[in-house]
Amino acid sequence: MKKQIVLWGLLIIFILSVPAYAGVPMTTAEASVRRVLDVLKDPKLKSPAAKEIKKEKLRVIYKDMFDEVEFSKRTLARNWNNFNPAQRAEFVKLFEQILEKAYIDKILDYSNEKVNFYQENMLSGNQAEIQSKIITSSKEIPIFYRMILKDGKWKVYDVVVENVSLVQNYRTQFSDILAKNTPDQLLEILRKKVKAQ
């Protein structure tokens, strides 16, 4: 009996002393980015006709990698509370479309640049900043992913490119617009933008 207790005790101590889980956010972000690169490099998808398939595949990865509600919420900041759930849902959808349309061609342009993940900073217990850089022939572009732990999964809520935070950049724009307009008017502006793109 004693032996049993001792052994179980040892077992528990053993497990509790599992080394720091260093790098879970980093591994998560890196894995997602690698998946993106795999799609972009896929020789079967090289033809222009396969562009839509590529886009569809990237969308799936994006959904898995990003927390788009958190992203939208942080972008609107306090203004988020003035949106009703239906408006919020529409905002999330429109915002996502704007981002996709603006950046998809840049992403599809990818031509074997190196991506390097090199550091992870914990911002708090459940937030982390993962630092990576894209190395092109003429320069290095630092890209940081800010991630949040939700339901046991690390998801990206902000991307910082060359020290410019996307969330903050949009927050300034939206708060500027919302200072003079209602949420409905902002949604109308976004709808128009999506159509025009």
């Binding site: 599992v18 080394p19 720091a20 889980y21 260093a22 790098g23 879970v24 550091q119 992870e120 900073n121 914990m122 217990g125 459940n126 732990l149």
Partner: peptide, 8 residues
């Protein structure tokens, strides 16, 4: 484990 150990 994650937050306790952190990254170096």
């Amino acid at each position: 484990a994650h937050s306790a150990g952190v990254t170096g």
